[in-house]
Amino acid sequence: MLAVFTDFDGTLVEIAETPDAIDVPSGLTERIDRALHDFDHAFAVLTGREIADIDRYLSPLQLPVAGAHGAQRRRADGTLEEVDQAIIEGADAIAQSLQALAMTNPDLLIEAKDGAVAMHFRQAPEMEEAVHLAMQEALLDHPQFTLVPGKMVLEARPVGFDKGAALRAFMQEEPFAGRTPIFIGDDRTDEDAFRAAQELGGVGIKLGSGETAARMRIANVASVYALLEGLGGLAHRHQDAAPIVTDTAH
Rank of each mutant, 00 (worst) to 15 (best):
R122C: 12
V83F: 03
A100L: 11
L109S: 11
R49S: 09
A44Y: 01
M103K: 12
V83M: 06
I88A: 08
T104P: 00
P106L: 06
P106T: 09
T79N: 12
A52F: 04
A102D: 05
T104W: 06
V24G: 06
V83K: 00
A76L: 09
V117W: 01
G48S: 05
D33N: 08
A52T: 12
G70A: 10
D107L: 15
P125Q: 14
T29M: 06
P64G: 01
I54R: 01
A42G: 11
I94P: 00
I54D: 02
E81M: 12
A44S: 14
Q99A: 14
L63A: 08
P64C: 03
I88N: 05
E82R: 13
F121A: 07
E126H: 14
E126M: 11
E82I: 13
A116V: 07
K113N: 00
A116Y: 02
I87C: 00
E111T: 13
L46P: 07
L133V: 15
A134Y: 04
Q96V: 11
V45E: 02
L58Q: 00
A86S: 15
A76E: 05
Q62A: 11
D23R: 10
A95F: 09
E30Y: 07
D107Q: 15
R49Y: 09
E50S: 13
D107E: 15
T79P: 09
M103P: 04
G48K: 04
G78I: 11
E126F: 14
D114H: 14
E129C: 11
L98P: 02
P125W: 12
R49W: 08
G67F: 05
R34F: 03
M135E: 04
A68Q: 06
E111H: 10
E82M: 10
A130P: 09
A71D: 06
D20M: 01
R31L: 15
